[in-house]
Amino acid sequence: MMSTRCLIQYKNTLLPLHQTLCRSVSSKASNSGDDIQYCIQLVKKFDYENFLCTLLLPKTYQNPSFVLRAFNIEVAKVQDNVSEVNIGNARLQFWENAVDKLYTDSVPAHPVVQALNKVEKLSKRNLKRLVTARINLMKNKRFLNLEELETHSENVVSCLFYLQLQVAGISDLQADHTLSHIGKAQGITNILRSVPYIPRTSPLPLDILATHKVSQEMLIRQDTSKATQDAVFQIASAAKIHLDKARSLKAKLPPPALPFLLPSIAVTSYLERLQRAEFNLFHPHLKVRDLLWNNVKKNLLTY
């Protein structure tokens, strides 16, 4: 989804992976302080694909993007680390309060909040939408239908893209529209990818599971029957529809917005591997880290 001019610029930055990553992280850490270093390492550890994509953004936008993604990780980790709703809500309330305190004299001492406090042009509304979506998921633990999953993806992943555009000073309805679809595709894909690692209730939409007569117990014991694969196919197809819609809008985007579409490559790669695995979410090949950097180089000319 990039113009030829942008493609040349980004293609020329694609040096061998191991050399590039080490240089980029050490340089950022030494120049941006401990808070930024914390954010970069957090994204590298918990969101490696977006870590790589962020390294390909213009340098001016890299650190703010790392900070925003680190904020998203910290909020998402709450649900992963607690089983009691009340405890989870209390921890999420900390992040909601932290957003309210940005740009005041009482900003919490947490390194991500401190780094976030230094990022200009942030929309508190979008930051709070992201936290509120996690609070709702903590309370409900599942999606009744695909529409609820899409709404959650919009409020979490798409909101993160909107915040990146705001930091970059890009105000464009077509860019928002395109990234809304990419955010929904990535959000749906993230839920699919999470299923093999969730020991309790699966977050897959209940209406689709019911249509294919797939129970929560089947997912917990990692069932690979045709019924389960058909349900996964239907959900993955929804993500693919959003990706295709985003691609159809690429010609209308302002060039500065194009680098922010790079995460769509990771989504495309996973969906392609899922298809090759015949929509078996528990296939061993899907648990192996994808060679995303090679996929970026391979697919850059078509994006």
Rank of each mutant, 00 (worst) to 15 (best):
V82H: 10
S83Y: 07
E84F: 00
E84Q: 14
N86W: 05
N89T: 07
N89G: 12
A90I: 01
L92K: 12
W95E: 11
W95C: 12
E96Q: 15
E96A: 09
N97P: 11
N97F: 00
N97L: 04
A98Y: 04
V99E: 02
D100M: 08
D100A: 06
K101D: 09
L102P: 00
Y103N: 09
Y103V: 00
T104M: 02
D105R: 01
V107F: 04
A109T: 14
P111E: 12
P111G: 06
K118E: 12
K121N: 14
K121L: 09
S123F: 09
K124H: 13
K124M: 07
N126W: 15
L127G: 06
L130D: 11
T132H: 13
T132Y: 14
M138L: 15
N140K: 11
N140F: 06
N140C: 06
K141G: 06
E147F: 03
E148M: 01
E148G: 05
E150W: 00
E150I: 00
T151V: 13
T151I: 10
E154V: 03
E154K: 02
E154N: 04
N155T: 00
V156Q: 15
V156D: 12
V156G: 02
V157N: 06
C159H: 01
F161H: 09
Y162G: 07
L163D: 07
L163T: 00
L163A: 10
Q164G: 14
